[in-house]
Computed example of a mutant assay.
Amino acid sequence: MARRDIKPFGNVPKKAIGQMGRSLLPSRTFLQALNLGIEVINTTDHLHFSKDCSRALLRMQYCPHCQGLTLSKPCMGYCLNVIRGCLANMAEVDLHWRGYIQSMEELSSAMSGTYDIEHVLLNFHALVNEALLQARINGPELSQQVNKVCGPPVRKPTQSPGCSFDQNKDNQGLKIFSRDSEETLTSRRKEFISHLRLYRAFYGGLADQLCGNELAAADGLPCWNGEDVVRSYTHRVVGSGIKAQSANPEVKVKGTDPVISQIIDKLKHVIQRLGVMLFPP
């Protein structure tokens, strides 16, 4: 019999390792995905506009001032063409950003029970109690096994400082404090996901939000079309994304920004990893 065959705590250590492993992997994957989300936001926040975009923005915002039309706002269609052209690369992130948020939401929902590190740690004391109980039940058998492997114990008289125990303190035991549900990691994670869900369409609808909320004139009001103040914008209004910009009359878009391509590849990769976590092979 080898020392490794002596198992004073039964299979509890193996159970504890299994629970820790199952709970730590989803948490680590969630944090890695969260860091990528931060990278996506920071990268798109610092994108540089092309020269064509800068000229189109200048024409839309400031050319009316040269004619003394300081209070005129761009027509809605005109504004959408300019902003969608400028943000065409950013709109390419939309589909993958939506998939990223959905995958984060699904993983967060799956992180419960033994797949939730907080749940495992808060209930770890139960495994410790179980391990001690196993050692107590198997005490005589364990003593025999230890004697076979290590030989009978040799007791030598030693001088050690006296130990005193406070019986009252010993009887108090461990105090388990109740935790408010709002303070748990699970509730914080759910709150974060609920806020993140609100920005699922952020990249696809950013141009519409900018024009609709502050840049463009309200429907029915005279507006600037890039040349003069008119009743309505008569040119075709294009959609979002790179492909749609081939028909954009206001901004020329040459192709996908390499930085955006890298971000999209990273999003695809993390979505795949999150999918593996949810549906392991």
Rank of each mutant, 00 (worst) to 15 (best):
E191S: 12
L174D: 08
G162R: 15
N171Q: 10
F165D: 08
D166Q: 00
N225L: 00
V149A: 12
A218G: 11
E141L: 14
A201F: 07
A216H: 01
P152W: 15
N171R: 14
V229S: 01
S240V: 08
G139P: 01
Q145R: 05
R136I: 12
D219Y: 06
S181G: 11
P152S: 12
N225A: 02
R136C: 08
S240T: 02
V230C: 07
P140N: 12
T186S: 11
K243D: 15
Q159E: 14
S143C: 09
K156I: 10
T234C: 13
D180K: 10
V237H: 06
K156D: 10
N225V: 05
P157W: 06
Q145D: 04
P140D: 14
Q172A: 09
R197C: 04
I242G: 00
L185K: 00
Y199S: 12
E227Y: 04
T186N: 11
D166L: 05
F177G: 06
A207S: 05
R189W: 09
K169Y: 03
K243E: 12
G205V: 04
R179L: 07
R189Y: 08
F165T: 09
K169R: 09
R189A: 13
Y203N: 01
P152Q: 15
S178H: 09
C150S: 11
W224C: 02
S143V: 06
E183V: 01
I242K: 00
F177L: 10
N171H: 09
W224E: 02
R179Q: 05
G204I: 04
E214A: 10
D208L: 06
R197E: 04
I137P: 03
G139Y: 11
N168L: 11
R189M: 08
A201E: 10
V149L: 15
W224Q: 04
N171C: 05
S181M: 10
G241C: 03
G139A: 14
R136W: 13
I193Y: 13
R179T: 05
I242C: 00
T234R: 14
V230H: 01
H235D: 11
G239R: 02
N168A: 06
G151D: 09
R200C: 06
N138T: 07
L174N: 03
Q159S: 10
E191H: 14
V154T: 13
G173P: 00
Q144F: 08
G173D: 01
S143L: 09
E227W: 02
C163V: 13
L174I: 09
Q167T: 03
T186H: 15
